[in-house]
Design a protein around this nucleic acid. Structure first.
Length: 489
RNA sequence: GCGAAAGUAGCUCAGCUGGUAGAGCGCGACCUUGCCAAGGUCGAGGUCGCGGGUUCGAACCCCGUCUUUCGCUCCA
């Protein structure tokens, strides 16, 4: 039985994920990647990067800054929609958006035919929202005698502002400083570089820009280990297309991205699409790829048809045209000409993908050993993703086997992430490698001295085979390289 | 943010009605060892999450706080 707490404990015990600042009691919803975690994560990021930029002729990458001009967040809609005034009912313990409560009351007036009262109320609410008058909002809720739908009481807390973007000051003198936000998504860095990349890369629509980077959200409740963190990493690709073709490309990316996750080793039955019923302000179609985490099916990747909302909005706010001239001919033989491209976005949480892969790899099984049944735990990671590819283990230290093992290890390590281990019994060493997902252990024994052959022990089956050093290298090259993984998509 | 539970060695945990900390595994050194968590010897490691209070005396009782888990809530 795969218990989530066992996976979390395993992640810490074997150097994958540590709580941030642990010796100071930790910092809520922030985690560090350990020596094995960073290797696995880097491999995942590289797999994604290559699947985008290397496998697609018309996708290129960028790496934009975390700090961006504050107006970008006005244009993107984050300043408005990431700021929610919240109020709690003390009796039912339920939390509501203060503006929603007032809007509901306005609808009730309208239902009764009292449009004047409704309009006055909404106008007053908007005035208070504009002025960020939280006290006023609370007074309005009380004076309207709005009650909690659950407890039916008006026993409210104060209205509090939940800003989901982190802000910081730039400039040493307080009065001259500017408030900057830590980006809540990496997508905007792509949108504002759309023309730079298109022009300098001579890109033709359709084309994509990919980016991997940190993003920050001040989540009210951050939970479930690294699933929802305040600082997290996104892998986003914005695909710019001719208006009217966006839904075709949306379908293309849906299937392409699904294949990617399967290639990483996530089983099809643990993956599913979840189509959004309620669309965000910028989208005309949206779907999530969900993975069956131990705590249920949850979003891992989002694929959104974002229309021309973002580029148009930046055009408006920046007063710089965000147009593309399309020389291709339409069915009437006329060039498509100038337009603002539509965008299909694929956005994966790197940490969520990491968690999905880790949960999937975590394997506990009972194996027959003579007439005993023993428990065995290992990480069934794709060899291309495993932090360590091969462990070199001399069967004993004496009689020159340690020296021979060291020599073989040195020969392999420039090409493969390898490790050398001569401590403890061979079985214990195999187990240590199983626990971090190393696909191969190579035993050096007396026969190695005679004929330069070694035995490879396979992680999943625990079966061994005897091969020459050259054969060993071939096996490692063929199975542990990312191109193997990319070819399976 | 609300409610509930938990926090003792790297891990899993024991520690009675309050009397100043233990086990197993793991870790390090050495010895032994010919293939799936072997054995021996020695050793390192804890101001019992943190702060305050009650008490002659607190891991244990009380208050606060931090962190984690679960349930609500939130998730452009």
């Amino acid at each position: 039985m795969k218990e989530f707490k066992d996976i979390v404990a395993h992640a810490k015990e074997y150097g994958f994920i540590f709580p941030s600042s642990e010796i100071y009691d930790g910092l809520q919803a922030v985690y560090d990647y350990g020596q094995n975690g960073v290797e696995l994560k880097n491999n995942l990021k590289q797999a994604w990067w290559k699947a985008m930029n290397q496998l697609h002729d018309n996708i290129v990458g960028i790496d934009s800054a975390i700090f961006m001009h504050p107006t970008i967040w006005k244009a993107s809609g984050h300043i408005d929609s990431f700021n929610d005034p919240m109020i709690d009912n003390k009796d039912s313990k339920k939390r509501y958006r203060a503006d929603n409560l007032i809007e509901d009351r306005a609808s009730e007036y309208e239902a009764k035919g009292d449009f004047t009262k409704s309009e006055t109320l909404l106008a007053e609410m908007n005035r208070l929202l504009e002025a960020s008058d939280l006290k006023g909002l609370q007074e309005l809720i009380i004076s309207e005698n709005i009650t909690c739908p659950v407890s039916k009481t008006a026993n409210w807390t104060e209205v509090r502002q939940f800003n989901l973007m982190f802000s910081t000051q730039v400039g040493s003198v307080a009065e001259d400083s500017t408030t900057l936000y830590l980006r809540p998504e990496t997508a905007q860095g792509i949108f504002v570089n759309f023309l730079n990349v298109q022009k300098t890369g001579r890109m033709k629509v359709p084309f994509g820009i990919a980016q991997i980077g940190k993003a920050f959200r001040n989540e009210i409740v951050a939970r479930q280990f690294i699933f929802r963190m305040r600082e997290f990493e996104q892998m986003e690709m914005q695909y710019f297309v001719r208006p009217g073709t966006e839904l075709q490309w949306y379908e293309y990316w849906k299937t392409t991205r699904f294949r990617f996750h399967k290639a990483l080793g996530l089983p099809e039955e643990d993956l599913k699409f979840h189509v959004h019923e309620k669309l965000a302000h910028y989208a005309n179609a949206a779907v999530d790829i969900e993975y069956r985490f131990p705590f249920g099916f949850k979003e891992m990747e989002g694929i959104h048809s974002r229309t021309d909302f973002d580029l148009k909005s930046h055009q408006e706010y920046s007063k710089k045209k965000q147009q593309y001239f399309d020389n291709d001919l339409d069915e009437n033989g006329k060039a498509y000409g100038n337009y603002v491209p539509f965008v299909v976005e694929t956005s994966v949480g790197a940490d969520r993908l990491f968690l999905a892969v880790l949960c999937n790899a975590f394997t506990q099984e009972s194996v027959q050993d003579g007439d005993q049944v023993k428990d065995r735990t290992y990480l069934n990671l794709h060899p291309a993703l495993a932090p360590v590819k091969v462990a070199i283990c001399p069967i004993v230290k004496k009689d020159g086997l340690a020296e021979l093992g060291t020599r073989i290890y040195k020969e392999l390590k420039s090409e493969f992430m390898a490790t050398y281990d001569e401590k403890d019994s061979i079985g214990k060493r195999y187990t240590r490698q199983d626990l971090i997902g190393t696909p191969y252990c190579v035993a050096i024994d007396y026969q190695t001295i005679e004929d330069q052959t070694v035995t490879i022990r396979h992680r999943n089956s625990t079966q061994q085979e005897r091969v020459t050093l050259e054969e060993l290298k071939t096996i490692l090259r063929e199975t542990t390289s990312l191109s193997t993984l990319l070819n399976s998509m």
